[in-house]
Amino acid sequence: MNQMTSPLGKDLVGLERLSGQQIRAILDTAEPFKEISERRIKKVPVLRGKTIVNLFFEASTRTRVSFEFAEKRLSADTVNIAAASSSVSKGETLVDTARNLEAMRIDMVVMRHGSSGAARFLADRIPSNVINAGDGWHEHPTQGLLDMLTIRDHMGRLDGLKVCIVGDIRHSRVARSNIYGLLKMGAEVAVCGPQTLLPQGIGDLGVHVLSRVEDAIQWADVLNVLRLQLERMQAGYVPSLREYNRIWGVSTARLERAPRDLLILHPGPMNRGVEIDSDVADGPHSVILNQVTNGVAVRMAVLYLLAGGQPEKAEAAKQGGEA
């Protein structure tokens, strides 16, 4: 198959299987897309006539809206399906959902699902391009990409940077996508959090493991602070949110002892006063809103790169209907 037709292949399921070159291609492609959002008419016709379904089995306003803006700015026709209002809640299985999408000749599906592997499952079963908008604890590739784009914007590079992901690594698809992506782009990566929230074998992925946030602040150029979900406390992974904040919270007082200015990222939504203090989130080193802006550009780049990605069709066009 001709890779030129689709630099990413059919789907974007995760960053683990992408090469550094492919990741760089997405980030570079995102650059011109940033500018489209600054135009008076925030729309280009590149995906005109394409139909995209945003299939969200888990609630996520932020990611869904970001994808929807990206799709609309590329002139695609979009439909949003939220699990609560769909046949999914009536017991329809994922495979039936996939078959229905196929029958409706959808060009692309953006899916958020609570089960790890759900995106791969769908991608293997339908001809449409599938973009993983988060599957269980597995991956959230566009978040990883937008985090990298934001870091690159502010630090000028990824190669050789020290990035520490702080918080609930075990249950985090954002952490995994960040780890895979950053390592491929030449960054050094550490994870930091209570041992109960670090998965077995995480060090074998090639990351440093730090147990105290003070150590992370000493070590890192960039902190990517993850949301601590309330359910984790209810499930007993941490005794209380207050204790978590006292020991692992990223606060101004702690950052003041950093040997250098740290860039602070957070994938949102934030629990102010739990994993991050407000004065940090709103402070000069926080790039949290840049992440949101970059999210649209990165998603536009991914949609664009996948859109031409029907290698059979492209081959056929070039070979005059053969193949």
Binding site: S116, G117, W137, H138, P199, Q200, G201, I202, D204
Partner: peptide, 15 residues
């Protein structure tokens, strides 16, 4: 199984 594969796949493991 709990181990590197479960960590990579983001699946809860059994030690």
């Amino acid at each position: 199984n709990e181990g590197l594969v479960s960590t990579r796949l983001g699946l809860p493991g059994k030690p």
